[in-house]
Design a protein around this nucleic acid. Structure first.
Lengths: 277, 277
DNA sequence: TACGAAATGGAATATTTATTCTATAAATCC
DNA sequence: GGATTTATAGAATAAATATTCCATTTCGTA
């Protein structure tokens, strides 16, 4: 075994790069330390950037960044970039052969599954624009912006949707209240005139959600609904409905379209309350 | 109002590219259709591939792929690649800037806002394929599939993510436990050997999440992490990390990539427990 | 402060990669 | 079925990018 060189061997994994980056933070000279610092926090830029870009972003000359790569053990930038590009390239080597049968079964790997869900997400987002009209969304945002308090209701699959909305509305300082399952039986008592209800319910529809929304509606409270189906019970009495269909993979659906829609809605509500628009 | 030309203009968004790709599938000549087909399913490869690579993967000559880019409305491959690289390169503004940004661009309508969030969703899904490797996801699914109980931890923005995962795992009959904020101080007592922890934490990172995950890790429990940043504290001790970056609109982010990833993960875990794969 | 060693930035060079051109092959129309 | 347009693949060229070299500066040490 020869002298304990700091580098010598070419890093083979991202983990190894990280280790050398952290180790080098102390011993590297000024400019190279700058490179290490920036690179450590922007690893994701490596595959899509040129040396010059990484150098400029790190605040050094291209040749300095070059020496930085070599100090890490690579022959140059290309070799380092190759390691990071491989992360992406290895992801799906032979997709085209399997087009057609996307069944979630034995021969389908995990990466394939992710590719399928991503694809389903793209489709869901594209169809979102078709089912949601500009004016409808605008009316809903306007209606909800005038509420004293926005009551959010959603169970099961819809719970994540309304809870993300609750988080965002809270951050935006829009008064809202997230109704949990346990408190729903008598939640009616906390909903007053001037409030609005935003209820999300996907097929098969939770009776509790429907009931609470209907009770509110009966008392003259405006109810806005979000669903994934044309025959949602909410549409029988809701002031206005939103539809977000999710493409499915092997019978499973993500929440891409729904959460994109509710996120938009929350931001639009805040925008209107701020007097703009 | 003039007729909406199919091409002519340079696509400015991923959404537009997707639309033209889907439209062109019918009208394009043979080789260019091959390009469209492959590219549609491998959008994430564009930023890290050369024309030759994309051409070879599509089964055509480089010059054919070149014409394909031009048929889409780009001047060439570089221009198309630039659009996809930009998504990674784009700089994310700070938390404090959000309301300011919102007011600044509030003259855009609600429908425009939805289009922007949809576009951000497309980008996030593309970036997901860049940061998650086939093998990494596979290892994680395998590791979590062997757990006695999966403990889900996530606060604030990450809460919706873990709660949707909890719902799905429950439906799939995979033993899991969702940890809420209030119970987290002594939650350590409910996590035993043979369990695994799945912790989600986005910048700025919740100390509670990190602490509970670290405590578990110190006790020999396997911890898997989900974050949106290269420098998440979890990566210091987690067995394995997942990164899901979300593109943002006016400083606001949806949860498209994160939930797509966790949905995939849940289904993959179940698949492994069922003995397939 | 003066010396040597190490580090730096910009310019020169080599390599890779995008793009265009052209001859040949299909497809389409009359 | 021949003529004309359109598509294709490979070779030639142009552009971008990585890499090296070297004169100059900076740093550490005596």
């Amino acid at each position: 075994m020869t002298a304990p060189q700091t580098s010598a061997l070419v890093p083979q994994t991202v983990t190894e790069v990280l280790e050398r980056l952290d180790a080098g933070a102390d011993i590297l000279p000024k400019r190279l330390k700058q490179c290490a610092l920036f690179t450590r926090r922007h690893l994701h830029l490596i595959p899509v950037s040129t040396v010059s870009e990484m150098a400029r972003a790190s605040g050094v000359a291209p040749s300095a960044y070059m020496r930085f790569c070599q100090a890490l053990g690579f022959s140059g930038y290309s070799e380092m970039q190759g390691l990071f590009k491989a992360q992406v390239t290895d992801f799906r080597p032979d997709y085209q052969d399997r087009l057609g049968n996307l069944r979630f079964q034995a021969d389908v790997g995990t990466g394939q599954l992710l590719a399928e869900f991503a694809e389903a997400g793209h489709k869901s987002l594209l169809s979102l624009a078709n089912s949601v009209t500009n004016e409808g969304l605008d009316r809903i945002a306007r209606g909800m912006a005038q509420a004293r308090v926005i009551h959010l209701i959603g169970l099961r699959r819809a719970y994540a949707v309304v809870s993300s909305m609750a988080y965002l509305l809270d951050k935006l300082e829009v008064p809202s209240s997230l109704h949990y399952a346990s408190g729903m039986l008598n939640a009616s008592g906390t909903i007053f005139e001037g409030d609005v209800v935003f209820a999300a319910s996907f097929a098969p529809f939770s009776p509790e959600t429907i009931r609470l929304a209907r009770e509110s509606s009966d008392r003259g409270i405006k109810v806005y609904g979000l669903t994934d189906s044309d025959n949602c019970p909410l549409s029988g009495f809701a002031t206005e409905m939103l539809i977000a269909r999710e493409d499915e993979v092997a019978g499973f659906r993500s929440l891409t379209a729904s959460i994109t829609l509710t996120t938009t809605l929350a931001v639009a509500i805040k925008a209107m309350q701020s007097g703009v628009d």
